[in-house]
């Protein structure tokens, strides 16, 4: 995680731009941090970039919010790494999806929560297929990806294969099992250190 005041490390292979509830506002913050310069340098050095949801919108050529739905009305230039543009509309997408990653063919269990419609020439190269329909976009050099799929890296097989493609070592982890194990550990901890029976007996 790169924090405010820090630079994006020059030796990164993949930079992930996560989602945002205020794409244009957070894009202004990203620029104020100088991260736009870091990202463009990272890309010029041959690095990969993945934008998820608001991060995908930022990677395009522009983000317009003519009706002022997510903040003050207006248009903000994007980072221009993917040839798409986004227009915010009142309609909100809210859905769980099962998709297939376009280049690795691995299944992705994910969800979408966003406003805004994204379109442009790079949509011709989808990031994933959702029930056969193309979703997201990939830059013409194949190194910048945009997707509306939140939670995509919880899909073990996709995560491992995607990272391996970028020559990034990935441990053989089972995401769901790890969360389950953490919850069991938490409950064990509480059973050891708290009067759980006493607490539950308070319920009415």
């Amino acid at each position: 995680m790169v924090r405010p005041g820090e630079a994006i490390p020059g030796d990164a292979k993949l930079v992930i731009l996560p989602g945002s509830k205020s794409t244009r506002g957070d894009l202004a913050f990203l620029r104020a941090q100088g991260w736009d310069i870091d990202l463009l340098a990272h890309h010029r050095r041959g690095g990969h970039v993945l934008g998820v949801c608001g991060g995908y919108q930022m990677l395009g050529r522009s983000v317009a919010d003519p009706e002022g739905i997510e903040g003050p009305a207006g248009e903000t230039p994007g980072l221009g790494l993917i040839d798409v543009t986004t227009v915010m509309t009142a309609q909100k997408t809210l859905t769980r999806v099962t998709a297939v990653h376009a280049t690795t063919n691995r299944p992705i269990e994910a969800y979408e929560i966003h406003i805004g419609h994204t379109d442009g020439p790079d949509r011709a190269r989808p990031f994933a297929l959702l029930g056969g329909a193309p979703g997201g976009a990939v830059s013409s050099d194949g190194r910048v990806y945009g997707s509306y799929l939140h939670g995509l890296f919880a899909s073990d097989s996709f995560r491992k294969t995607f990272l391996a493609q970028l020559d990034i070592p990935a441990a053989d982890q089972q995401y769901r099992a790890r969360v389950e194990s953490a919850l069991d550990t938490l409950a064990d901890y509480m059973d050891t250190h708290l009067d759980v029976e006493g607490l539950l007996a308070l319920a009415r």
Partner: peptide, 15 residues
């Protein structure tokens, strides 16, 4: 997290 831990602890008790 306390609620999550309690939820798991109570679920394991058959609730």
């Amino acid at each position: 997290l306390i609620v999550a831990g309690l939820a798991r602890a109570a679920t394991r008790r058959g609730n």
